[in-house]
């Protein structure tokens, strides 16, 4: 615990007066409730009042706000992950930290701990905003904590995974701009195209859904996938997203792999 406190204090002293980090963090915090309110305002305007909306009732609400949070953190947490690594390379402060006496593994641990704490904070914010949203839109706090807690775990894992994935791109490409562009190209184009067109056609089945960026995204998937699939004729139905358990297991495995690769890279490369 003492070491965790030591490393988190070190990270905090680096970011507490860093405007870029403040912009990323405030954007992640503020955009989420704003996006929820915009969605509510839109749905209540276009959907007739007499049409019963279960969208804003638990557990659907957790899934809906989780999906909104997915889009926001997809960009903001990944770029934060890239930034906390590339900032140290561009100012040569990683090198300076090591010269000063910080072990390379401790440097990586401090970043992972920061991302972990950030994921916990954003998940708490997700819970608070969703509860307030539930009160506002559904006039209810009627949810089952035991079954709905899977949403919390999924959300936490998703934010943590995005942060670690960002760190990985930062460590490999060492430049904020390049790292983010290549992440975006990979996660938004390369992986979906390869997994669906190449992997999907060659191997078939659902295995193409298990690629890392998709596994992380499917922790908080589009809430109406199952409804959409049900609308299709039975012989044309296909799996659009991983199940919660599948995405959690795949994400944990990928997180372990990413952390192992980062640890190996940071310990073996010249700074």
């Amino acid at each position: 615990m003492k070491k965790i406190g030591f490393l988190l204090k070190l990270e905090w002293s680096k970011y507490r007066k860093n405007n870029t980090m403040m912009v990323f963090a405030l954007s992640a915090l503020l955009l989420f409730p704003i996006a929820c309110m915009l969605l509510y305002s839109f749905t209540t305007r276009v959907i007739p009042e007499e049409f019963p909306l279960t969208l804003y009732e638990y557990p659907n609400l957790w899934a809906l706000t989780g999906y909104i949070s997915n889009w926001i953190t997809y960009f903001l947490v990944v770029i934060t992950g890239i930034y906390i690594i590339t900032m140290e390379y561009s100012h040569k402060t990683l090198r300076q930290n090591v010269i000063t006496g910080l072990r390379r593994t401790e440097f990586l641990q401090s970043k992972i701990l920061f991302v972990l704490l950030y994921a916990i904070t954003l998940t708490m914010w997700y819970i608070i905003v969703t509860l307030l949203f539930g009160l506002f839109a559904g006039e209810s706090l009627n949810f089952d904590i035991s079954s709905d807690s899977m949403f919390f775990l999924s959300h936490f894992l998703m934010v943590f995974a995005y942060g670690v994935l960002g760190m990985f791109f930062g460590l490999v490409f060492k430049s904020l701009g390049l790292g983010f562009i290549l992440f975006f190209l990979y996660a938004s184009f390369l992986e979906p195209i390869f997994s669906r067109l190449v992997h999907g056609n060659l191997i078939g089945g659902d295995s193409h859904l298990f690629y890392p960026a998709n596994a992380f995204k499917d922790l908080m998937p589009f809430p109406f996938y199952s409804g959409l699939v049900d609308l299709m004729p039975p012989d044309q139905q296909f799996k659009m997203a991983l199940t919660t358990n599948e995405s959690i297991i795949a994400s944990i495995l990928y997180l372990g792999l990413l952390i192992l690769i980062m640890n190996r890279k940071i310990n073996r490369s010249d700074l």
Binding site: K14, K17, N18, N19, T20, H91, K92, T93, R95, Q96
Partner: peptide, 8 residues
């Protein structure tokens, strides 16, 4: 060269 956090 000296390496510091320039924003601090």
């Amino acid at each position: 060269t000296p390496n510091h956090y320039p924003f601090l």
